[in-house]
Design a protein around this nucleic acid. Sequence first.
DNA 1: ACATAATTTCAATTTAAAATGAAAGTATTC
DNA 2: GAATACTTTCATTTTAAATTGAAATTATGT
Lengths: 179, 179
Amino acid sequence: MSNTGVNQVVWSAKQQEFVQKWRELGVAWGIPPAMAAIHGLLMTQEHPMVTDEVMSFLSLSRGSAHTQLQALVEWGLVYPIKTLGSRQVRYVAERDSWQMMSCIARQRKKRELDPLLELDAWKRSWASKTDGLEASAVLDKTLDGVLAQASAVDGVLGRLLAEDERWWEQWLLRGLRRN
Amino acid sequence: MSNTGVNQVVWSAKQQEFVQKWRELGVAWGIPPAMAAIHGLLMTQEHPMVTDEVMSFLSLSRGSAHTQLQALVEWGLVYPIKTLGSRQVRYVAERDSWQMMSCIARQRKKRELDPLLELDAWKRSWASKTDGLEASAVLDKTLDGVLAQASAVDGVLGRLLAEDERWWEQWLLRGLRRN
DNA sequence: ACATAATTTCAATTTAAAATGAAAGTATTC
DNA sequence: GAATACTTTCATTTTAAATTGAAATTATGT
């Protein structure tokens, strides 16, 4: 049977609004709308959901629902739950906010920071070729600064995102709540 | 005359590669390719450039060159220089790497963090309507955590980006260079 | 006031990313 | 070992964002 209908799925106006907002937020963060929407939906749901439920709640195609659920699992924002005695997979969102934001930060680091850090190697590869007389002193100077900052941020992030090290959470939240 | 040809424009292979890389980086950061490319180009140039030069160096249309130069000025990454006795405007990139990254961070905060912070007000507006019995306890709990973290990050960023307060730079760079 | 040289605007086009949906692939049960 | 129930893939279409280019606008010098 395709729908056991065990869990009662809630879909209030508040939840719909939230999903809408989360989708928009996602777009601003460079996340595919459907992916953000699915994540938002799962955040509002007490119980795991099945692909077909996600599809109908958000009016998504099967392809999109599937692909984006995969991506969410890949990111660690959603857990796939294999139902015993059925091929069906059900999905739940990570509930811990710190864990959740860490997942997002990790992906963004990979997409945005790491390529910037690679410029360092690139710069050095040119340094050997054009040793001494540089083509653009201005660029080199600014770039050095940028790369220093980038690796500093990388260091901080590395520590912040180290799994099982959550003292940072306390530090961050306690020390700086008032703003 | 349209081209006084005073400054010698340099356009080496290294610079071209850099612009290419900077453009790609820009895309990963959610910045329009042309905008990032222009910024990259200006970073490599000792002297201010005129719109037509930018256009021909990057093979851009006038419309795009203009719009993106405006955006760069708006962000504070590029300064417009009005030539005396001519309508022509010349553009130079900000040279200070800290300043540069601050500009970018400020824009990203506006685009990505501020909308997240607004969820707090949204959440409160629902709290009054549905006082007590909530539609989704799971959501509320996770969301509280997310918002706490968001405002913590907001606090840190606020201090980091406060103009004329650069002790952070030292702190960030010195304390964490090794990684 | 006129002509020129620049900037600015914006409807139309292009481009890249995301979504679709139908077909192909795989477990699971009978 | 079929048949069923679900998942996965991918060529095509859609959508949103960026770019174009030509026309409109505004500043500057004669």
